[in-house]
Design a protein around this nucleic acid. Structure first.
Lengths: 348, 348
DNA sequence: CTGAAAGCGCTTACAG
DNA sequence: CTGAAAGCGCTTACAG
């Protein structure tokens, strides 16, 4: 007896369609999957019957039989974070257009959790994986990531990453983090700032390394290096930004600007400056990075580096939808400096 | 020959574990799924072997054989929207804790797309569906939703919704939208505002109806009704807020406050007021609804109604994880008025 | 408690 | 081009 007959919901099966169309399930299967080896009229008839009945293939049966899966897995650090939410939006848009479902995983910003989520996705037999978090500089993390990814691709899976993942060897959409870091630091230096506090996330992340490298390039043109600046590491979040701001202000009360390595941190920085009654940009200038949607509406409107997050999400999935290339593809996502109200010429 | 032997990634199967443990696959299956009918030591041995080998069951095979699926589907209007991103974060957190993967779907705010996504999820054979968007007042939409949901639950699926969905008859987490609407309108009225423009999303949404009903309750205490106010319908987004603000200002230049029915719209309203050089709250007060994370950091900090979005996401999935009850459960998510800098006593 | 066997709903060589 | 049959990796009555 069929399962689920308790409800009226018992889904149609391929046999139902085949019977109604007067063909074998083999023919019905081929017609529906668009495979060759069926006459045009036969295929048309089967498809018409399927459409009429509202038949949709059971993905589990299909995946089990074919070994392939249409599912796409998306790994983000934290979906509540606007940066990842906007990327996810782009991924969903493209997935939708291709009739694919996306499974989404949190890592909570822990690299080993990321490896575990990757494994979970592989076990869930998705056909494509998009990793939206930055690569990690730790060799142990890298090799574990690489093992998962290679196993997955060897089995026919496709993966694309957003951000630089050293050594991973897969298709990637790489934001212009170095150029962005250079641009935002140049902007601050051009306004006369020299005592710049940097609010950074974990420096083990490739994203952080790249943004800092850009900052360093700009500094060098002015005879400075990062070592001359207070660079404070904290969580790469709003609360982390608060934390970093407090430490910068307490230990280096003479800073005239705080350069946060993402907008979330910048919001936290603004919040602490507000609490302490420090005027922005009157007394201290503040910058962010990413340009999340609300950045232009903050108090004050945030000077930051724009990155096209949604587009990055779209491109990553599009890359992964392409057949695997002999050598990994790489798309660069351009940055753009957005000068707004949170920065001004250095005081005094 | 086994599939996938091209790569080293050929996943282990239950037979591999069973062989290694010296038992039948039936016993191995029972041991691993925690079913009864296996001796404790046998079960322990099998589990040890599975752990050692790193075996994870193929979800597709398992779902196909058992008819049940551990997957959870999440339907949101737009994942790039902070309201839904925060809800999703809560859902993912609980899903993670239960070892379940979540498939996420966009509706683009279209009710018929929502029905279609529901159907897609049912076809994907998830075991649980969480619908995060507001219910719709259109009877045709309601009956289509209901048909999908009932079929799904009849087949053993579980669904929970966030927001009021009239007639749906499923477990629900319902935010205190009426009370919130009353509170925010009361606040404005208490400050002396009478000419209040309302920036609303589609009034076909239950959420909108409820928030407006709350506003109306507050108005009545002052001898007013909604009909006395300019209520402008637009997209329930930042751009929709801009649109609504322009129409309100152009057609009713005498308003002293604009009450937006969510924070996204409020941000758009603030943006237009800024463009036109209208001081907030000096000339016009502005309020939002939801209290997304950045609301307190906007320019000016937004007076709004706090809703615990992440917690709502958690609760919804927790409800859906429970066995179906005789009558639908309902949890209320409390609101809290957050008075910040965007509202002030009416001028002159 | 344990195992042999049927079956879940598909796809895909293999014949014809 | 079409179909009968094996097989994908599990679960679950059914015997023992």
């Amino acid at each position: 007896m069929r399962k689920h007959t308790a409800g009226q919901a018992a889904a149609l099966r391929l046999v139902d369609v085949a019977e109604r169309a007067g063909v074998s399930i083999a023919t019905a299967s081929r017609a529906l999957s668009g495979a060759s080896g069926v006459s045009a009229e036969m295929a048309e008839r089967v498809r018409a019957v399927a459409a009429e009945l509202g038949y949709v293939a059971n993905v589990h049966a299909r995946s089990l039989a074919s070994g392939a899966s249409p599912g796409v897995g998306l790994v983000v650090h934290e979906i509540g974070d606007p940066y990842f939410a906007e990327i996810a939006s782009g991924v969903l848009e493209v997935a939708d257009a291709h009739g694919r479902m996306v499974q989404i995983c949190h890592t909570g910003r822990d690299p080993y959790t990321e490896v575990a989520q990757l494994r979970a996705l592989v076990n869930a037999r998705v056909g494509i994986i998009v990793v939206a978090g930055s690569g990690h500089l730790d060799p142990d993390v890298q090799s574990q990531m690489k093992a998962q990814v290679q196993g997955f691709e060897a089995a026919g899976g496709r993966v694309a990453v957003i951000g630089r993942h050293p050594q991973l060897g897969v298709d990637a959409v790489v934001p212009a983090n170095v150029a962005g870091g250079r641009a935002i630091a140049d902007h601050l230096l051009g306004l006369g700032h020299r005592r710049i506090g940097v609010a950074s996330g974990s420096r083990r992340l490739a994203t952080m390394a790249d943004r800092l490298a850009g900052v360093e390039q700009a500094l060098r043109a002015h005879g400075l290096t990062l070592d001359d600046l207070p660079v404070v590491e904290a969580e790469f979040t709003l609360d982390g930004g608060k934390d970093a701001a407090r430490r910068i202000l307490d230990e280096h009360p003479d800073v005239t600007a705080i350069l946060a390595l993402n907008d979330d941190m910048a919001v936290g920085v603004l919040s602490v400056l507000g609490e302490r009654g420090i005027a922005v940009p009157g007394e201290i200038s503040v910058t962010g990075f990413d340009d999340v949607v609300v950045a232009g509406h903050l108090s004050p409107a945030l000077t930051t580096v724009h990155l096209p997050m949604k587009e990055m999400g779209r491109q990553a999935l599009e890359l992964a939808l392409l057949p695997r290339a002999a050598r990994p593809r790489r798309r660069t996502a351009e940055q753009q400096l957005m000068v707004r109200a949170s920065t001004a010429r250095v005081r005094g």
